[in-house]
Design a protein around this nucleic acid. Structure first.
Length: 84
DNA sequence: CATTTGACGCCAA
DNA sequence: TTTGGCGCCAAAT
């Protein structure tokens, strides 16, 4: 599959360094689509791939957001990485 | 092909 | 400040 849109999402998310977190909006903004934050989250959810550190993408509100394997697991990973 | 879904974000009340 | 509603976008049904 890997549509052009997904390639952009992965390109940005994959570059997120360990111990750092980006918001869905920031990712969308880097793609050149400032208002596609929702589509970004939707793409990561459907893909459920570990090839990309999608757990480093959180909401702009400061909330954890979501995770295919559960938000709790997402938080746990961030803690292990030192983000929290 | 048309409609609904969903890991979002911002504004108004 | 907190809650509700509206707008946006791509993928799935």
């Amino acid at each position: 599959m890997t549509s052009s849109f997904q390639e952009k999402v992965y390109s940005v998310v994959r570059r997120i360094p360990r111990g750092k977190t980006l918001t869905y909006k920031e990712v969308a903004l880097k793609m050149g689509m400032p208002n596609a934050a929702r589509a970004v989250g939707n793409t990561l959810n459907k893909n459920r791939s570990k090839d990309v550190p999608c757990h480093r993408v959180i909401r702009s509100d400061g909330k954890i957001g979501g995770y295919y394997w559960g938000a709790a697991a997402k938080i746990e990973i961030l803690k292990k990485e030192g983000t929290i």
